[in-house]
Design a binder for these strands. Structure first.
Lengths: 256, 256
DNA sequence: CGCGATTTGTGCACGTCTTCACAAGCGCCT
DNA sequence: AGGCGCTTGTGAAGACGTGCACAAATCGCG
């Protein structure tokens, strides 16, 4: 089994071996492992232990081992994981052996930044098209790509074999764009617009909402503030008593 | 309990009543509910049922009710939730009654976009400072704010009462910036750099990695492709290792 | 050749999150 | 006033994810 056959000549069409169905939580962590592994490879490491890799990826080592075990991974007991092999494995499972083409719709503030973000190119993707509904933006060149009108999507999808659509439009336009993407056969969408998209079964949508992230942080911030104001007795989840609590400056180390 | 005490005159300093400790999963959904509620309010709705709100927020209605019940919410059986009241409740719990000041470090490609993103301002935050380590960027004005050098952070933190730090630097600089933020007392960080930050206990970090989102989509795309290629019989999740797979067409049966 | 040091892979128990299903509560209509 | 339909809030069951702890496997060394 030490036979080390590397996965995919990307080559031709759909005949791909089936994938194990991984737990979603695992899938969400694999990219992080992959990044950490690339760092290790660049630093010259040939093998890495679960302990080392998990530290680099910011997770628990047991979790890491279980995750890797799900993809039938090849670690060596007493030694660790072969960095290069593991990179191959994960890239294969994530479908990164082919460089997928991404269409970015909405070249406003955020869209501009995304179009110029080199993290996509360096991590398995190719921004293949920029689209916008605003005629005054059409024709603009960003990072070597010319912005085209969103109505050209059908043509673009075919020309470039678009696999993933990224929506960076205002919320009001997002659903319409999503429909257009679905109509041309895109089944994976990354949505930056602050709204819920409805799409047919079989289409995957992931949402990134920057304000939501801040609001979650705000909650914890609020919570920490309300805790440090208190004398910290036994830990019962106290339910919002408007009561006394005065002190403002007595903040001290929070309990573990 | 029908007593309806509404939360916060934002007014003065830190004396805030303690918060119930909500499940993380719930906290992560509250902002979405809030956004949906604002939409409903703008559309003139005064009340909304759990069914209606859950649809607008893209979740299951039972989940929504349980989430709201955690914050001791005030719905009326047979009627639904009072939109305005619920907005107040959620904003209070999330700590949005005060407009928190955000410091954005790293005014490159992405940082520029974030600095210009009006979703922050409209949803409870104030970008109070732009910082960068590159002297050639210092002094630039973006959206009415002048970029200052990151070494001025201590002064800025005090002047603006920074509550949250956003890191939009290259990965190599991120840890250093995080340390600086922590040093000036920031306990909530939103990290856009593709790397793991280590911070002391009590500091919250949330990470947004755009490439990771795409990679997760890529997995599902890959998976869908490998499924459609097959005649779909019932079966075990076979373990797809690159190992043997000589034959390209003998693949059979993936599970549902 | 065998032994000990090391590290993976995993069974198991625990906690968290989700979902169903239904009793309790509320308003409206008669 | 009483009953009916609608909607919330929640108990309980199940699915899912996590982390411990240890057996199994491998390497290196004497």
């Amino acid at each position: 089994m030490s036979q080390h056959r590397h996965p995919g000549a990307p080559g031709s069409a759909g005949a791909v071996p089936a994938l194990p169905d991984l737990p979603e939580a695992t899938v969400a962590r694999l990219p992080e492992y992959l990044r950490a592994l690339h760092n290790l490879a660049d630093a010259g490491h040939e093998t890495v232990s679960s302990e080392g890799l998990s530290a680099a990826a910011g997770v628990n080592s047991a979790k890491l081992r279980k995750d890797l075990s799900h993809l039938g991974s090849y670690g060596t007991r007493g030694v660790g994981y072969d960095v290069a092999l593991l990179i191959e494995q994960i890239e294969y499972v994530l479908g990164l052996t082919q460089r997928r083409a991404v269409a970015l719709v909405g070249v406003g503030n955020l869209g501009h930044a995304l179009a110029g973000y080199d993290g996509f190119a360096s991590r398995g993707f190719r921004i293949a098209a920029l689209l916008d509904a605003d005629p005054s933006r059409v024709g603009e060149e960003i990072n070597g790509l010319v912005v085209r009108h969103v109505d050209e999507l059908p043509a673009v999808a075919v020309e470039e074999s678009i696999a993933i659509g990224v929506i960076a439009t205002p919320a009001a336009a997002a659903q319409r764009v999503a429909d257009q993407l679905v109509a041309v056969g895109v089944t994976s969408i990354l949505n930056f617009a602050p709204c819920v998209l409805s799409v047919p079964e079989g289409v995957d949508v992931r949402k990134v909402d920057l304000a939501i992230e801040l609001q979650i942080l705000s909650f914890h911030e609020h919570r920490k503030a309300s805790l440090t104001a208190l004398p910290a007795t036994g830990g019962s989840a106290l339910t919002a008593l408007p009561g006394g609590l005065a002190a403002t400056d007595t903040q001290e180390a929070i309990g573990t």
